[in-house]
Design a binder for these strands. Structure first.
Length: 438
DNA sequence: CGCGTTTGACCGGCGC
DNA sequence: GCGCCGGTCAAACGCG
């Protein structure tokens, strides 16, 4: 059993413009043994994070990132999201799992395939042995700066051996938050090349950020959900369309998504519902949490997929778009986003909210087309933070690159290779996808 | 006319 | 137990 020393791994650095330095950094990390206690802060002292105060930590992080990427990065706080464990967690002294994500990774990527090379890399990386992939902080940021951090659990032990038995495992909060700051004109939740690549079974089988982000959702849950849906459908056939009280309450109990499956993205975006590669149907809109900006509720329109999301503007910064995903897609991205746009009257594909404040672009597809082009031509504009990888430190590695949770016995048949192998694996498999080349 | 969105009502969960 | 709040439903609405 190997954990990250809470003070040993404050941050990883990933600077594309200084990749050779980072290369050395990664090598240094990889050369650490399980017992290595060399703090990454010593390797990358400029990225050292305070481990005592979470808010201070994020604030300082945001400031650093802002200074490095050249534009303001709103704070990462998700005040509306609270975890009963956050306090106790903040008192623990475990590392914050920042994880590098390529700009090509997108919400759809994050939410899509159950098998993902990214998670595979993470799970197989020496980080797994020595500590959490705490952060990839990009300095310089000529290209993408991508970060994942655990919002509620700034410092967590990394355990790949006996995760379910890890003390407090069941207490690990699993509400995640992703912050995606982006230049307004370069809003792109979708890394087009990546999304396209997901249409390939090969890539889809290798890539699953979702298993990292939404570590609590498993296929079994989908099976349950599907069963529930079937039951609901059968009920629908027997009961009048209007149903309140009994029917609804039963349904609520069965279908209500668990908060711990959530992934929260925060980004600067003018689109109220930026394309993420999936088709959504809006089913509700509500003012919540004192936010004058209404929250819109969406369901994935794919048959049998129970993923929902709600989108709202930041109370303080209307440019800040907060997208919360509930659940995990049990299907690939709809084949070809162009197909998405070919729905009835071209109004169903992207469910762009018709709020007065921000309206759909002249062409229903223009936004997405722009996103494609913007990403391809300005990959450096995608800035992704991810917070709240609450279970990240605990997911086991199994044959399917999935994760077992709760009462499931961990099916651990993946042996963490030595550092050299891991390093080569990262270079060979992860970085090419990111467009990096050592 | 078909479709998605809007909107008010309803429900369950949760905190007090 | 009560009230607040977030989430959901479904009729009404409006656009193409």
């Amino acid at each position: 059993m190997s954990y990250w020393d809470g003070n040993s791994m404050d941050m990883m650095c990933w600077n594309h413009s200084k990749m050779s330095d980072c290369d050395e950094t990664i090598r240094a990390m990889l050369e650490q043994t399980d017992n290595g206690l060399n703090p990454i802060s010593q390797i990358c002292p400029q990225t050292n994070l305070s481990t005592n105060n979470q808010s201070e930590q994020r604030s300082s992080l945001g400031e650093r990132v802002s200074s490095r990427i050249g534009f303001n990065v709103p704070p990462l706080e998700t005040e509306s999201i609270t975890s009963p464990f956050s306090v106790s967690r903040s008192q623990t002294n475990v590392p914050s799992p920042f994880i590098p994500i390529s700009p090509e990774f997108s919400p759809s990527a994050l939410l899509q395939s159950p098998n993902n090379s990214f998670s595979q890399h993470i799970t197989q990386s020496p980080i797994a042995n020595d500590g959490p992939p705490e952060m990839v902080g990009s300095s310089g940021s000529d290209y993408a700066t991508t970060m994942i951090l655990n919002k509620d659990v700034p410092h967590q032990p990394m355990n790949f051996d006996h995760m379910p038995h890890h003390e407090g495992f069941f207490d690990i909060p699993t509400e995640e938050s992703v912050y995606v700051p982006s230049h307004e004109s370069h809003v792109d939740l979708i890394g087009a090349p990546l999304v396209n690549s997901f249409e390939s079974d090969e890539v889809a089988a290798e890539t699953d950020i979702m298993n990292i982000i939404s570590l609590d959702s498993e296929d079994e849950e989908y099976k349950e959900d599907e069963n529930v849906d079937e039951e609901d459908d059968s009920v629908d056939e027997l009961l009048p369309r209007k149903r309140r009280k009994y029917e609804v309450s039963d349904m609520f109990g069965a279908k209500r998504t668990r908060k711990d499956e959530r992934v929260i993205l925060r980004m600067e975006c003018e689109e109220d519902n930026p394309d993420d590669g999936y088709q959504w149907r809006k089913y509700g809109r509500k003012i919540v949490n004192g936010n004058p900006n209404p929250r819109s509720y969406y369901k994935c329109t794919y048959g049998g997929c129970n993923v929902k999301k709600h989108v709202e503007r930041g109370a303080d910064d209307v440019k800040l778009l907060v997208i919360t995903y509930d659940g995990k897609h049990n299907h690939p991205t709809p084949t070809g986003r162009s197909n998405n746009r070919s729905g009835p009257r071209n109004r169903s594909g992207f469910s762009v909210s018709r709020t007065p404040r921000l309206r759909k672009l002249p062409s229903s597809s223009s936004a997405c087309q722009y996103c494609y082009s913007s990403l391809e031509t300005h990959p450096d504009m995608t800035q992704l933070y991810m917070t709240g990888l609450s279970k990240l430190p605990s997911f086991p590695v199994n044959h399917n690159h999935g994760f077992t949770y709760r009462n499931d016995e961990p099916n651990i048949d993946c042996v963490i290779p030595d550092s050299t192998e891991v390093y080569n694996g990262i270079k060979d498999r992860l970085f090419p996808k990111f467009g990096f080349n050592f």
